[in-house]
């Protein structure tokens, strides 16, 4: 059962990433694109988690945690820049 569920979920998350890419190029405006990029970060960490289940390796979770963390910091930094025109005050 898992052997066909996993590819289906892979397809769903990949489709989600393609949709995110579409919103990233559609915009309009920087906040919209930042939101799309933030969602893309979370979705790619979801993809890596799925790959970790597929390969049954635990190293992938560390990668997923790192990507989620970098995505959060990146989003906050870009928002800070949008709000103040400066990241570190």
């Amino acid at each position: 059962m898992l052997s066909w569920v996993l590819p289906v979920v892979f397809a769903m998350v990949s489709l989600a990433l393609i949709l995110n890419f579409w919103s990233l190029q559609a915009g309009p405006g920087v906040p919209d694109r930042t939101l799309a990029l933030d969602t893309m970060y979370i979705n790619s960490s979801a993809l890596i988690i799925l790959y970790g289940i597929w390969q049954s390796g635990s190293l992938y979770f560390e990668a997923a945690l790192l990507i989620a963390m970098l995505g959060f910091i990146g989003t906050v930094a870009v928002c800070k820049y949008l709000l103040r025109g400066d990241i570190i005050e």
């Binding site: 059962m1 898992l2 569920v5 996993l6 289906v8 979920v9 769903m12 998350v13 489709l15 989600a16 990433l17 949709l19 995110n20 579409w22 919103s23 559609a26 939101l35 799309a36 969602t39 979705n43 979801a46 799925l50 289940i53």
Partner: peptide, 24 residues
């Protein structure tokens, strides 16, 4: 166990996809 895992994975996949559909 396979059933529970598959169910969680499918629900998760659906929600991830829905989030992106909503974003688009």
């Amino acid at each position: 166990i396979e059933l529970i895992v598959s169910l969680f994975l499918l629900v998760g996949g659906v929600f991830v996809l829905l989030g992106s559909v909503g974003l688009a």
